[in-house]
Simulated assay, not measured.
Amino acid sequence: MTTAQDHARQGASHIYRAMRDVVQSMDDADTVPGRFEITRKGIVHDMMAPIGPHELTTLHLRKRLEKVMPEEIVAHTGEPDVEDAHEGVMRRPDVMVIDLVDMDVPGSFDPRTLHAAIEVVSRSNPDNDWVGKVGDYPLIGVPVYAVFDPRTGTGAVFTDIHATPDGPRYATRKDFVYGEEVTVAEWTISTDGLPRYKDEDVSS
């Protein structure tokens, strides 16, 4: 017997596939700057500068993490996305801490195989990192989410996914300021000297 809940799931799945097709077509066209992601609330367009403090921060974090992690674990930047089609979420973290073996898959990464997702806050859409992803990442099983914010020189690490009436949420948040050491999953790195946005970085 088909229930109303089954119909709702099928409808949600159809909508997600349609949004995924739109995102794929925009990525393939490569005519619109920035990045498109799918959240529980729809498609998000994050306008990012191709160079500058955002990308430099990502580079610093990748290099610092890979100095302290074993060789079989990497701080990956770039494609592909992490995706949970059942939850209707497709994101692309700035840095994905993941085992090399778990990267050898067709299509998107399984978010539950990540050790951590790291985002460098975009100046154009900070709520995407501070609000949207704080809700999406525990929902799809990313165990640790770290946020670095070049606007303020601060950040936070979210851990300990637990069930709530509104769905999975992170139970623990540890804030830090640039200059302090920060622990992401099992690895501690310095935040000293990370770049900050300047007044002219209006599109970062």
Rank of each mutant, 00 (worst) to 15 (best):
R91M: 12
F109M: 03
T113D: 13
H76K: 08
G135N: 13
E87S: 15
A156K: 15
A146H: 09
P93A: 06
L114Q: 02
D46L: 07
N128F: 09
R91D: 03
L65T: 13
P53K: 15
I118D: 00
E55A: 14
F109C: 03
L139G: 03
I140M: 15
I73V: 15
H115I: 05
I73D: 01
K133Y: 04
M103H: 04
I73H: 02
D81T: 14
H162M: 09
D136S: 14
R91I: 14
K63Q: 12
A117R: 03
E119R: 03
E71A: 11
A163Y: 09
D94R: 03
H86L: 15
M90H: 02
D104T: 15
Y145C: 05
V101Q: 01
L65W: 11
I73M: 10
S108R: 06
G141E: 04
V68E: 07
M48F: 12
P70R: 13
M103N: 04
I51L: 14
V142P: 01
P93H: 03
E66C: 07
A116N: 10
V89G: 00
G135A: 15
N125E: 12
V147W: 01
P150F: 05
V121C: 11
I73R: 03
G141F: 06
D84A: 12
V97E: 00
V142S: 07
L59T: 15
Y145G: 05
H115P: 06
R112E: 14
I98G: 01
I161Q: 01
A116D: 11
D160K: 11
H54Y: 10
R64L: 07
S108K: 08
E55G: 13
E55P: 01
P93Y: 06
D149C: 03
L100M: 09
V101C: 00
A75K: 00
A156V: 15
N125P: 03
M48K: 08
T152I: 00
E71T: 05
I98L: 07
D81Y: 12
P143N: 09
V134H: 03
M47C: 08
E72P: 04
D149Y: 06
V82Q: 01
D46M: 10
V44W: 00
